[in-house]
Design a protein around this nucleic acid. Structure first.
Length: 193
DNA sequence: GCTTTGATGCACT
DNA sequence: GTGCATCAAAGCG
């Protein structure tokens, strides 16, 4: 397994969103290590009305305008965190939202963080659940994904394009129904079919 | 400084 | 399937 380099992220945002499927997100927290296979992503690029960076740089979205390979985490709906990866050229303000993981390591820790009553397949299904299970919080916004404790690895297995489904994004109220959501076909851990 | 609303998840029917 | 908690940042004046 190899940590993905900045070169991987500094490319077309839609391409990065597709290729992130099947990669492994790892967080080495104080409480322990958790990891999972990325099974669902969404692309947010410049010019897209639903993208946080569309209306210019603000305090919240500032890290989106930084170099690729940086985590962008934000708080939404008064309860939930969402985890994004900054992509494209520095200053473009583009990112990929990671929406769901298939739990791999540290499952017990995830269960503890999510609550014992949580069904296994919903441990990290959905942007808010994913952050909760992985222990990702607002403090992780702006940290590099190129080094520990938070990084993404390539396990060598590319996901065949036949196994990738493309749909419109979830929860978008502004903008057109763009086909910018990608997920692995028949994977039980995606947040929604 | 005041109001609106959102890249959601969960409890409840 | 539907309603709603909950709050910071954005948008407006």
């Amino acid at each position: 397994m190899r940590i993905l380099e900045e070169d991987f992220y500094r490319r077309d945002t839609v391409q990065v969103a597709r290729e992130l499927l099947g990669k492994i997100l790892i967080h080495e927290s104080k409480e322990g290590l958790t990891s999972g296979i990325i099974v669902e992503t969404e692309a947010y690029y410049q010019g897209d009305p639903a993208c946080h960076a569309t209306r210019g740089r603000t305090k919240r979205n500032a890290v989106m305008f930084g170099p690729a390979g940086i985590a962008y985490v934000y708080f939404v709906y008064g309860k939930h965190h969402c985890f994004n990866v900054v992509t494209g050229e520095e200053g473009s303000g583009e990112a990929v939202l990671v929406r769901a993981l298939e739990p791999l390591e540290g499952v017990e820790l995830m269960k503890r963080r999510r609550g014992d009553k949580c069904p296994y397949r919903r441990l990290s299904s959905g942007p808010g659940n994913l952050c909760s299970a992985m222990g990702i919080k607002g403090e992780h916004s702006g940290v590099s994904l190129l080094v520990a404790p938070l990084y993404i690895c390539n396990d060598g297995d590319e996901v065949a394009s036949a196994d990738i489904l493309v749909t419109s994004r979830v929860g978008i109220s502004r903008g057109e129904e763009l086909l910018l959501r990608f997920y692995i076909k028949n994977n039980p851990y995606v947040s929604r079919r």
